[in-house]
Amino acid sequence: MDLLPVILTIITASTPLLLAATGELITEKSGVLNLGVEGMMLIGAIAAFATAVSTGSALLAILAGAFSGALVASIFAVLTLIFLANQVATGLALTIFGVGLSALIGSNFVGVALEPLPKLNVDGLSTIPILGKILFNHDVLVYLSFGMIFLVGWFLSKTRAGLILRAVGESHDSAHALGYSIITVRYLAVIFGGFMSGLGGSYLSLVYTPLWAENMTAGRGWIALALVVFGTWRAGRVAFGAYLFGTITILQLHVQGWGINIASQFMTMLPYIATIVVLVLISRDKGRIRMNAPQCIGKPFHPSK
């Protein structure tokens, strides 16, 4: 069997997970746990789709998806950072809100067909046999997902702003004492999380399956959340996690297609089982995990405390 199309399928399946997980990584590194990824992705998906249908512009559609993700994230930011609402509950409420709002907006777009985005072909390069197809024959969001996770990894480990972000997530009291604005840093981190979730949603409704239907994320936001934990809050491992999950999801479909004698429910379980197993293997080394997990995650910050 030809492996090339399989690899392309895996890339497509992994990209939305990676986009959303990249955003959530930054959010969590700043000490905020936003469980509303699913809701933000759905908002991004419908905003992008609606814009693409109305304007015909792929660029505008992507921007609309990303910024509307950021917009609903700002609701979360205001509630949890200023009103100090509980982050876990607010995130879940954001998902309920996002599912409802996207369905409401989307009711006019059910059954509307859309042309997929043009692929960003790099002249000459994409004609290189095999490698050219794998590396240089995707739509722009795939490249963006790689670029962003690389950028985020670099930002967190190499830049001063990244250091501040990590300090805020590690110990907001010390960072506050040093004179950093906890609220501002976290606000920006949450907005970035929404922006990336919105992009992930846009990828679903513009590229992955160019259509709109209610709840079309089908739980991918939850997987993205889990992948940040899986990656032990490190960019490289988050990317590895997204691709591990995507790969096993696709391969189990292939194995089914070959006609295997195992009930399909067990095949569908495989990506979930695999992430647990790999996480357990990674986590055994306690010291390394603790250094990466933001200590203040989920805890509200209040200066007078």
Partner: peptide
Amino acid sequence: FNANEILTSLM
């Protein structure tokens, strides 16, 4: 194994 319970319980 020190595996984070958010992921394991969700999966």
